[in-house]
């Protein structure tokens, strides 16, 4: 895994934006509301939506906390781009710090305050409820996520993403730790306010944090959500799916293909599963998923001790 010069952040960010756009296009195609419309309109939805939001005049609310609101709406995109710094594509990565995995984890925790601030700042009841819902749901998915992240680190004996990828040269970690892989994907949906864990941005709240932002603010917030999904898919590829490992094709292409596949799955789940209420998520997360991830970690640790 070679570290790249500082300018590598620009193509990395571009890659995230392209993948996020593709995810949004796929969601446009899958959206049942678009049935009967021409394919170009559904496939090009991210483009049209971007153009529309850029032209839209910004609405505001009564006495918003503008500073926290703006910071909160921009936050998800910033967090996603900072996460992307440690996500490898084949053998290439912007940076491969010795604590890359913890970096990823710390940034997903940064979303707690970010989303909450986005909800609080609007001074609107929907946003406020949404922010608190996100915090309570984050409590549910964060602990299983941490243990799911611990599993590949223990198996590889390192917190360095490059070494975790290298440790999968024989078997991909998804074979050895399928539960951790699943939990990781669910948590990605959780911190992206997506699919079954989209309760904080639920329709019963008129979109929650998405209710009040308009114009470019809304664009940045929506882009941030797709960017988080993208980076989560990229990270799952590196941690569980062997990174750039694969026959014939070059490593970077395999990485991108696997990321695209996981991302498509994450996007498709939105239309396939109902949104779960936070208290049910909590019960499920702590009573079922947490013990399962701990057992998974035990199995992985024993295997690692056995030297396999």
């Amino acid at each position: 895994m070679t570290a790249s010069p500082a300018w590598a952040v620009v193509p990395a960010a571009a890659l995230v934006v392209v993948f996020a756009g593709a995810a949004a296009a796929l969601d446009g195609v899958l959206d049942p509301a678009g049935r009967g419309r021409p394919m170009s309109g559904r496939l090009g939805r991210p483009l049209w939506e971007t153009a529309r939001l850029l032209r839209q005049r910004r609405r505001t609310t009564v006495a918003p906390d503008a500073l926290l609101w703006r910071a909160g709406t921009a936050g998800p995109l910033v967090v996603a781009l900072l996460m992307a710094v440690v996500v490898p594509v084949g053998g290439i990565t912007v940076a491969d710090p010795p604590v890359g995995l913890v970096w990823f984890n710390a940034l997903d925790v940064a979303l707690w305050l970010t989303v909450w601030a986005a909800g609080w700042g609007a001074n609107s009841v929907y946003g406020l409820v949404s922010g608190y819902r996100f915090l309570s749901q984050a409590l549910a998915y964060e602990l299983p996520l941490m243990f799911a992240l611990t599993a590949p680190a223990v198996a590889a004996g390192s917190l360095k993403i490059g070494q975790i990828v290298a440790a999968q040269d024989k078997t991909w970690f998804v074979v050895r730790m399928p539960a951790a892989f699943l939990v990781f994907l669910v948590a990605v949906a959780g911190f992206s306010l997506w699919g079954p864990l989209a309760y904080p941005a639920g329709r019963d709240l008129a979109g929650g944090v998405l209710a009040e932002p308009s114009g470019v603010d809304r664009l940045v917030l929506l882009a941030g959500r797709y960017a988080l999904l993208t980076v989560g898919a990229g990270m799952s590829t590196a941690l569980f799916l062997g990174g750039g490992a694969g026959p014939l094709l070059p490593g970077w292409l395999w990485s991108l293909l696997k990321t695209a596949l996981v991302l498509a799955g994450l996007v498709a789940v939105r239309r396939a599963m109902p949104v779960l209420r936070a208290d049910r998520v909590m019960r499920l997360a702590w009573l079922v998923v947490l013990p399962v991830t701990l057992l998974q970690l035990l199995v992985v640790s024993v295997l690692a001790l056995g030297g396999s």
Binding site: V109, A110, W112, L135
Partner: peptide, 11 residues
């Protein structure tokens, strides 16, 4: 990581 989590709850 710890401080952001803590502040989220503390808020």
């Amino acid at each position: 990581l710890m401080m952001l989590m803590e502040m989220g709850i503390m808020a």
